[in-house]
Nucleic acid binder design. Sequence first.
DNA 1: CAGGCGTGGCC
DNA 2: TGGCCAAGCCT
Length: 377
Amino acid sequence: MIVNEDLRVQAHETMSSNPTTLASIPDLRDRLGAWYRAHARVLPWRSEPTPYRVWMSEIMLQQTRVDTVIPYFERFQETFPTVGELAAASEERVLGLWAGLGYYRRARALHAAARVVADQGAFPDTVEGLLELPGVGRYTAGAIASIAFGIPAPVLDGNVARVLSRLLALEQPVDKPAGQRLLWGVAEDLVNPEDPSAHNQAMMELGALVCVPRSPRCPSCPLREDCRARAQDQVERYPIKGPRRRPKKVRAVAGLLLDAQRRMLLARRPEDGLLGGLWEVPGGDWPERLSAPAALEQVWRERVGVSIEVGERLGEVEHVFTHRKLRLVVHGIEVTEGEPVARGYPELRWVDHASVSSLPLSRLTQKVLAAVGWSDV
DNA sequence: CAGGCGTGGCC
DNA sequence: TGGCCAAGCCT
């Protein structure tokens, strides 16, 4: 009987996940559209949804909250009113304006894509063409295609996945390939060909304002009568997700070296990897078995190529990355032998107090500078 | 395909 | 407070 029961559950799931199911619910799209017209937030990129503005907003919004993005979007649009001006800027300038927004690979992708578009003379106007741009994946291509060009392409982001997962009471983990495939199919079938821009934004807006992860506002939901999770009174059980990795604790040291004019030595991190391309106070890993001074001596020997004497402990910074909790200790140092040469770093630079802020700095480095009294951050 | 990649806000 | 989350992409 257990086997039969399982098969029935499976069959039931398959039914409820059938792409035709949601799309065939009477007026579902219309109710969603009416709700969106009444409740859509006024956002900078919505007032004038040109391909350039939509593209830039979508890159910035990847894994990033609307409130965080707005000032960055405004600043970028004021600085670079056209994609041509963005393409003509230096990468360091773009990275500098991006500083603090996180996921810095996006900044380089933004710049690279701007140069592609400037070369081609215009944005691609198909999903396939958009997918060729660096930093543009399936979600972003669908968003630009639908919002900027009115193409009936689906989008599937965290919001849409949550909304659909609850509507269907989907037992599949939404963050696994199988669940993603299923949800892309549902989203594709559900897109409203009458107004794909409003439809896609409505799905995301519903997830952002009503169908939120915790304490969803079901009484305000235009789709509440169609929601299987709500019918089961188990809305917060969905979306089901796979296990998360625990953050690991890591330690690091950094050394503050000043010259006779009280300039500070900074280093640019490698393009790839953590905080790629950003500038920092030279430092690195602090192994368990070493004291902070010993670790600092080793790091500076390997990455800056000099022997040092470790001086006063100037401060300590705690910082959280994705799945990583960092404790970083900063010491003042003196060079006892050799001249600083970039080894583990692509570039070193002496920077005075006034020009520090013109470099692309991560929040972490901003904290470090604040801890040693070099900035007001 | 699982894992790397920032930051800030929430409870 | 630590865990979870947010308009993903890339390798």
